[in-house]
């Protein structure tokens, strides 16, 4: 690696400068939990921009009606943060099932997004939460994308030349919100998902409002299962409806066979996890009725 092949800027402007004229194949190094595996294996990149010292990527606050999460925020910080738990329980649940404490302390929200893994747990939660991702560059200023606009395929994103993920904005959960995350076991964490499902919806006046269901490891990208959402939208949650939504979800995913599981099993897991999530929603509704809240 040449002199300019490694840059460790002190602030965002420095990082954007380093990216602005970066050769193709340049990689941003944040926590290193993914990139270091490649570096250890002998892979080399024309330039590495280490953003560990860029404080502008460290925001974690409620701001302007959203939870603002800096790209450099680690999974461990998400887990320790009461605002995350209150306003984006789904993100917290995904973080809790993320790798291991040793990885959570370094892995970042931005890294999870731009790695663009089909099995990325945080990305899945962010997709279900309708989060917006803010990209910045020296030339182009700021632009904002939905998660499904950012993540285009395994390892492939819409990040343009010189662009960096700065923040993720997650709409605050309303009091009527229900969040649920399911991931294949048996390990509680430290597991690449065979399949995972993230569900965010609201139940208002007994009806499902704005359901968003995202499925992981069952398509080239974390996938919203829109037909299943359509089954639910505006309807009353019943066992029959749950069944219908679960089957709709399983039908629309596009899993593959790999060393971890077959496509057929992944499809079955999607059905099981959607069913479990929605059943939990139904149960939570019963509980809230019973307690009169």
């Amino acid at each position: 690696m040449t002199e300019q092949g490694y840059v460790r800027p002190d602030n965002l402007a420095g990082a954007l400068d380093a990216l602005a004229d970066a050769p193709e194949g340049t990689r941003v190094l944040a926590g290193g939990t993914d990139l270091m595996v490649h570096l250890r294996a002998g892979k080399r990149f024309p330039r590495l921009v280490n953003v560990a010292r860029v404080s502008e990527l460290q925001a974690l606050r409620v701001w302007g009606g959203a939870l603002e999460v800096g790209a450099g925020v680690t999974v461990a910080r998400l887990l320790r943060d009461a605002e995350v738990r209150r306003h984006a329980a789904l993100l917290w649940q995904a973080a809790d099932r993320f790798a291991s404490p040793l990885v959570r302390s370094r892995a970042t929200v931005g890294g999870n997004l731009v790695n663009a893994s089909p099995a990325a747990d945080l990305t899945l939660a962010l997709l279900a939460l309708d989060a917006r991702v803010e990209l910045v560059s020296r030339a182009g200023g700021v632009r904002s994308l939905g998660v499904d606009e950012l993540v285009l395929g395994p390892g492939k994103t819409a990040l343009g030349a010189g662009e960096l993920v700065r923040t993720v904005r997650v709409p605050l959960a309303k009091p009527t919100a229900f969040h649920h995350f399911e991931k294949s076991g048996p390990r509680p964490a430290l597991e690449i998902s065979v399949a995972a499902v993230a569900v965010a919806l609201r139940i208002e006046d007994g009806r499902v409002v704005e359901p968003r269901i995202a499925c992981g490891a069952v398509a080239p990208v974390p996938l919203r299962v829109v037909p299943a959402e359509q089954v639910l939208a505006g309807r009353e949650l019943t066992p029959a409806l749950i069944e219908e939504a679960a089957l709709a979800a399983a039908k629309v995913v596009r899993p593959i066979d790999d060393v971890r599981a077959t496509a057929l099993y992944r499809r079955r897991l999607v059905a099981a996890f959607v069913r479990r999530s929605l059943t939990a929603a139904l149960d939570s509704q019963r509980v809230s009725h019973a307690t009169g809240s």
């Binding site: 089957l247 399983a250 057929l264 099993y265 499809r267 079955r268 059905a271 099981a272 069913r275």
Partner: peptide
């Protein structure tokens, strides 16, 4: 899990969820 679920389905203990 996959082997067990396949076995449960094949034996008719559970219905194929799909």
């Amino acid at each position: 899990p996959e082997r067990v679920l396949n076995g449960l389905i094949a034996a008719g203990v559970v219905r194929d969820p799909l």
